[in-house]
C-alpha cells in the first residue's frame, strides 16, 4: 500500500467495467450522458445494468444538459488515500442534475463566494492529472 505522504503522480485511472464502458466512451468523446429507464422514465447515476427505481432492464444512455443544483459539498483539506491530489484544499460537490441524477465531481473555478445549497452548477469535462473527469463550475463567480 502506498504511503499517503508519497508524492502522487497521475490520478488513478478509473477501473471501468462492461456496465460503465459506454458511459466513459461518451465522456471521452466530450459528451456527458446518464442512464435512463425506458420502462419507468427514471434517470440516475452511475450506470447500472438495471433500473434502481423499478428493476427494469431496458436502460439507455441519454444526453445530460449538465445543469444541476448543489446538494452538498465537502472541502478536502487533507489528502487521504493512494495517489490522491496534493492541491488541497479542493472541493467535491454533490449535484442533482435537472434530469434527476445525483453526481459527484470536483468543483472547478471555485470563488470566494460562500457555497449555498441549491445554487446552480454546470458540468464540465476536464482532463485532470492525466484523467478525463466530470467536474462542475459555479454559475456564481
Amino acid at each position: 500500500m502506498r504511503d499517503v505522504n508519497q508524492e502522487a503522480t497521475d490520478a488513478p485511472a478509473p477501473i471501468t467495467d462492461r456496465d460503465s464502458d459506454p458511459w466513459w466512451e461518451a465522456l471521452y468523446a466530450g459528451q456527458l450522458k446518464l442512464p435512463h429507464c425506458l420502462d419507468c422514465g427514471a434517470t440516475w447515476f452511475p450506470p447500472t445494468p438495471g433500473c434502481p427505481e423499478c428493476g427494469g432492464i431496458h436502460v439507455e444512455l441519454i444526453a445530460s444538459t449538465g445543469r444541476g443544483h448543489l446538494y452538498s459539498w465537502v472541502v478536502i483539506n487533507r489528502a487521504l488515500g493512494q495517489n490522491v491530489p496534493r492541491d488541497t484544499p479542493y472541493t467535491i460537490v454533490a449535484v442533482d442534475t435537472e434530469e434527476g441524477a445525483r453526481m459527484i465531481g470536483r468543483l472547478f473555478a471555485p470563488s470566494d463566494q460562500p457555497m449555498r445549497a441549491g445554487e446552480p452548477l454546470s458540468a464540465v469535462i476536464r482532463s485532470v492529472r492525466g484523467q478525463t473527469v466530470v467536474g462542475f463550475e459555479r454559475a456564481i463567480s
Partner: peptide, 19 residues
C-alpha cells in the same frame, strides 16, 4: 482510505474523493 475495487470506485478515486 483504501480503494475498494468494485463498480463504484471508478467515479470516486480519479477525482480525489477517496476516503
Amino acid at each position: 482510505s483504501t480503494e475498494f475495487h468494485g463498480p463504484a470506485g471508478q467515479y470516486r478515486y480519479p477525482i480525489g474523493f477517496s476516503a
